[in-house]
Design a binder for these strands. Structure first.
Lengths: 207, 207
DNA sequence: TTATTTCATTGAACACTGTTTAATTATAAA
DNA sequence: TTTATAATTAAACAGTGTTCAATGAAATAA
């Protein structure tokens, strides 16, 4: 009966560590995270970390994955727009951009393989990748629908999806790096980007 | 008379350090660069670094700027195509992509403010930014010409230039991160990206 | 309750990082 | 040869991630 309590206690300490790490990352960034900072914050010895995690990687990975899933989840609730798939796509990307800009640390870590700790993107994205490819699949089906309806120019669906994705990705990173852009300019950039891209993939008579 | 020799000797040692650093970066990345690695390679004591450079930053900055200039230079020699500005733009970007992929470490460091050492993007890009905006200007004038000729849809020139730039940037980073993409797939991505983008900015009757 | 086993926690060390200071060596000028 | 100047270094400091043997406490068995 104390086996449970023991496990619960374990989980509790584990979460305490993660919470502290989350706070530190929020304040000092992933780079600013250190084992001793964590253990100072929670009044433990540095060695304790290795009783609850394999290494520092595992902590960062856990939090980064958490952050990335939050970003991907933002797309999930986009409602289908049967007749105008481009609006559906646009809505999804708009949310995606907003979510990414809200957790820039985590987005960067995943997309850019950024932080020193997380060297093995593969392991980090075991789950993330499947969710991403799922999202990519959604995007593909929207494009396919657009093509079938004659709204979009016939094209290699997956390639087109990747282009949309990549361009959006570039925009996000740009917005992240250049921190001194006005909210207004950000919106104009996003808007114009979509204009060009959709203008590029949509049939002439639909524009 | 030995004043020269002395200065020459200084420059020599400085270059020795930079050469060693360059090698290490090429092998282990900017993250893998350390003062002791450098000094071991050139059989000096770690402290010597601080006689020739202010700190590690200065070394990284020097090399990053060097690498970035090489990348920007790749665009310089693109010949104007009076009647088909889109081809001119495409050629410039194609070279830019190739150059960036040849020095990925440096490109990342400059564009993503990536490496732990270089924290002050401002200082690093003092020159970089002016060169970049010069390049951006070239891009703008090409677009303007396209608009004037009726080949491109009337638009906010600078905004459009930024979109092209940003999208290309996203593509480059994607290609960098996902190392296991075939040369063929890379070309298809680049090709399709341009197709979509130009299709998006060019006038209907020109496509 | 006592003895034993199991688990959580830590102190201390190791190897690495960038950096600084005082001391040392080598080289030039007097 | 002596003096002054510049180049070079040894040693230390504070920080990093990580390991391991020793300690503490709590759960189980006697």
């Amino acid at each position: 009966m104390s086996k449970e309590r023991q496990l619960r206690k374990q989980e509790e300490v584990r979460n305490t560590i993660l919470d502290a790490a989350r706070d530190i990352i929020a304040k000092d960034g992933i780079r600013g995270l250190s084992i001793r900072k964590i253990t100072n914050a929670i009044d433990y010895s540095p060695a304790i970390i290795y009783h609850y995690f394999k290494d520092k990687n595992e902590i960062v990975e856990t939090l980064v994955r958490e952050g990335y899933e939050r970003i991907l989840a933002s797309i999930g609730s986009v409602k289908r727009n049967e007749n105008e798939p481009e609006k559906e796509i646009r809505e999804a990307f708009t949310r995606y951009i907003a979510a990414a800009l809200e957790s820039p640390e985590y987005y960067r870590a995943v997309m850019l393989n950024d932080d020193p700790a997380v060297l093995k993107r593969t392991r980090l994205l075991e789950k993330g990748i499947s969710e991403r490819s799922q999202t990519l699949q959604m995007l593909c089906s929207s494009i396919q629908r657009g093509v079938n309806q004659g709204r979009f120019t016939p094209c290699d669906i997956e390639l087109t999806a990747q282009i949309l994705w990549t361009s959006t990705f570039g925009l996000i990173i740009k917005l992240m790096v250049e921190k001194d852009i006005s909210r207004d300019q950000v919106n104009r950039l996003i808007d114009h980007q979509f204009t060009v891209l959709f203008n590029g993939i949509m049939s002439r008579n639909e524009v």
